[in-house]
């Protein structure tokens, strides 16, 4: 049974790709308001681990317990190109509305909140611009904005700032960090070790020799 203060727990988790184990016997517990960094070389299974946490993939062995709602900034920037910036952000709030309430559109009374988030990310595009017309960096910031708008218990972020300039990288990560004060937990996979050390409470390192947690 998952501990009441924990949002996510992995017990003896293992993931196999082909004949190779990416990681085994992984034990992890994420309490409220925690910032966990995930680090390791490319192809070691960081994205797969986040997909498992998002429940779009499964562990080969072991078990995952999650009692929390999630926001997810994935590497694909899963945004709908034909919808506007505002509509894409509003998609983050779908879980709060019944399916028939959104059948005829995504009308919002939260335009001020959205503008505020966009401003905090220095995204100077019209909320009505089609996402497909934005640059990679702008799209990545829309993904972050959607995750922040979602107000979920757990925020999964897979290389969330890879296309942003340095100043915006720190600014965006600080915004994620600020959410931990309000009780949201953040799990963030990042290549940049220095950046992770600045914001993470703990870093999960996965490499050829296995996994380890660094405080």
């Amino acid at each position: 049974m998952i501990h009441s203060a924990s949002l996510l727990k992995i017990q003896a988790g293992g993931l196999k790709r082909g004949e190779r184990w990416l990681f085994r016997d992984l034990n992890l517990e994420i309490p409220k308001g925690h910032f966990l960094g995930v680090q390791g070389p490319s192809g070691i299974g960081k994205t797969s681990l986040l997909e498992i946490m998002a429940r779009t993939s499964i562990l080969t062995e072991g078990r995952l317990e999650r009692s929390s709602s999630i926001a997810w900034i994935d590497q694909h920037s899963s945004l709908t190109a034909n919808l506007s910036v505002e509509e894409n952000i509003l998609l983050g709030g779908l879980h709060r509305r019944r399916w028939f309430q959104t059948l005829f559109g995504l009308s919002s009374l939260k335009t001020d909140e959205i503008s505020e988030i966009l401003k905090s990310l220095d995204l100077q595009v019209s909320p009505h611009s089609k996402v497909g017309l934005l640059s990679g960096g702008e799209r990545q910031r829309v993904s972050i904005a959607r995750a922040l708008f979602q107000n979920a218990d757990l925020l999964l972020a897979d290389e969330p700032v890879s296309m942003l300039p340095d100043t915006l990288q720190t600014k965006s990560l600080q915004l994620l960090k600020d959410r931990t004060v309000e009780g949201t937990s953040v799990i963030c996979a990042l290549h940049n070790e220095q950046l992770l050390k600045m914001y993470a409470d703990q870093i999960l390192v996965i490499d050829q020799s296995g996994w380890r947690l660094i405080s």
């Binding site: 998002a54 429940r55 779009t56 709602s69 999630i70 926001a71 997810w72 994935d74 694909h76 899963s78 945004l79 709908t80 190109a81 034909n82 919808l83 998609l91 983050g92 779908l94 879980h95 019944r98 399916w99 959104t102 059948l103 995504l106 979602q150 979920a152």
Partner: peptide, 25 residues
């Protein structure tokens, strides 16, 4: 399909994931 998968994972109903993740595209 990642868009619909993403919406589903973040708590959207199947119909919402289809409407905004697939049909909107």
């Amino acid at each position: 399909l990642n868009i619909a998968r993403h919406l589903r994972a973040t708590g959207a109903h199947n119909i919402q994931a289809f409407q905004y993740g697939i049909f909107a595209s």
